[in-house]
Design a binder for these strands. Structure first.
Length: 468
DNA sequence: ATAGGGTTAG
């Protein structure tokens, strides 16, 4: 920051073009908060933003979830007598999408159309991606088909977006059909297409298809890249197939592709049960001049917490901060979980308040950790309060959160309350899973409540939830 | 010239 501050005071002063360029390079590294604070300094030194500057700032605010500020930057463009351009509008739509407001993004699109603003292919790709990422894959396909009939034709990026969406949804076969369709339309698949498809088939264990895709790639003169190898390392690692992981790494070397941070993160993640090996990889990574990123730190912190090596966690957090990474929600969830599991409930609550105070929006995982921690720490009342707040705020479709609360009630012997919660869960349209029934049945039978236990066991069987 | 879209990891 010192270097950038002196940059602002250069003689002659930098142009707004140079400042925008610097902001852009900071954003490229995803250091959005840094870019914003640099701009604040520039602004107070008297620099006036151009539309490009404001577009960059809109992007920054969107990425850190401050949509109200992003919107006020939109207003600033008008205030300076300029018109938002296609990049402004697309950036803003992207912001709505990544902040769980895809519906608003679509409304914004309709509004722009009504005002006769011209959007382009990138704008549509942004919307299609938003739909895919929010699980509305059918709506995304519909929009793709609309594009086919219109003036803005889908490109390889458009197809890749939907293909990836299908693959993430476990619909690899359908994705493959779409790839054939795209070839039929005269658009050849590229490395991204193949990577998505390989991810899709490897995540459902259809290795034959994966091998076929790899062969097909080579035939089409498309070489596997680091992404391809990382996807394979991850998929094999998740299945515990260490031999295959090593084979992929060997193949990677043979293709002259160097492992990157993601490769190391993936390998470390697969070895978190063996923290020492993960730490060795961490050292190796630094020997190769690969800079650890936030994911690296989060995985290591998680592994160290779970293996009880707390003193090292502190060092690592300091190192992480020194390297310019601020903890994100994943970091906080890891630490909250560690505090709860170590029965340091007061520390957990203090951290939670700190997170809220920073304006970071906790997610369902945060609440699951806390409610479980509160129950196990003898604070059932507080847990119930937090749980009911969640239901009121619309988090009522996730079985895991009910399971945690049911478990908490059972642990206190409050079986009737637990059974009532099962009913409430069904009323809310959330399907109990095998964990729900196992929790209740185990607790009831353990306390000699055999009749109630038996009744639930029958219900579980009737719902087809009993494991064979 | 500087800014917006698709692929991997928690």
């Amino acid at each position: 920051m010192a270097a950038t501050t002196s940059f602002l005071h250069m003689r002659p002063p930098p142009s707004i073009f140079q400042i925008s360029k610097l902001l852009g390079s900071i954003v490229k590294k995803k250091h959005y908060a840094t870019a914003l604070s640099l701009w604040k300094r520039a602004h107070s030194s008297g620099f006036t933003p151009s539309t490009v500057t404001l577009n960059i700032l809109i992007n920054c605010y969107c990425r850190i979830g401050q949509m109200d500020f992003a919107f006020s930057m939109l207003g600033k463009i008008l205030k300076y007598g300029n018109q938002p351009d296609i990049i402004t509008l697309t950036t803003f739509m992207k912001g709505l999408c990544i902040n769980n407001m895809v519906g608003e993004a679509l409304d914004f699109h309709d509004y722009l159309l009504a005002k006769r603003f011209q959007l382009n292919e990138v704008s549509y790709n942004t919307l299609i991606n938003g739909l895919c990422k929010s699980g509305q894959i059918r709506a995304a396909i519909k929009l793709l088909n609309t594009m086919k009939r219109g003036v803005l034709k889908p490109s390889v990026v458009t197809y890749n977006t939907v293909i990836d969406g299908l693959c993430k949804y476990g619909l690899a076969n359908e994705a493959r059909d779409l790839c054939s369709e795209m070839i039929h339309e005269g658009i050849p698949p590229n490395i991204v297409t193949y990577n998505s498809l390989i991810y899709g088939f490897s995540s459902v264990g259809q290795w034959q298809e994966v091998i076929q895709l790899l062969n097909e790639m080579v035939l089409n003169d498309i070489n596997p890249d680091v992404y391809t190898f990382n996807i394979l390392v991850d998929a094999f690692g998740k299945e515990g197939r260490i031999t295959e992981v090593h084979a992929v790494l060997a193949m990677m070397m043979k293709c002259d592709k160097r492992p990157n941070v993601v490769t190391y993160n993936t390998l470390m993640d697969g070895k978190m049960r063996r923290v020492d090996e993960a730490l060795d990889l961490f050292k190796e990574m630094r020997c190769k001049n690969l800079i650890p990123d936030l994911v690296t730190y989060n995985s290591l912190i998680d592994g160290l917490c779970k293996s009880g090596r707390i003193s090292y966690v502190q060092d690592l957090i300091h190192e992480m901060l020194d390297n310019g990474y601020s903890p994100n929600l994943v970091t906080y969830n890891i630490l909250l979980d560690a505090f709860c599991k170590r029965q340091q409930l007061e520390e957990a609550i203090a951290l939670y308040k700190q997170v809220e105070g920073q304006g970071v929006q906790p997610n369902l995982h945060t609440y699951s950790i806390l409610i479980d921690g509160l129950c196990k720490g003898g604070r059932l009342g507080t847990a119930l309060k937090m749980f009911h707040n969640l239901l009121i705020n619309g988090y009522c479709q996730d079985a895991r959160i009910y399971n945690i609360m049911i478990n908490g009630l059972c642990a206190e012997g409050l079986f009737d309350d637990a059974i009532n919660l099962l009913s409430k869960m069904k009323e809310n349209g959330c399907f109990p899973d095998s964990v729900t029934y196992e929790t209740l049945i185990r607790a009831l039978l353990g306390k000699g409540e055999n009749e109630k236990g038996k009744k639930l066991l029958l219900e579980m069987v009737a719902r087809g939830l009993l494991k064979r």
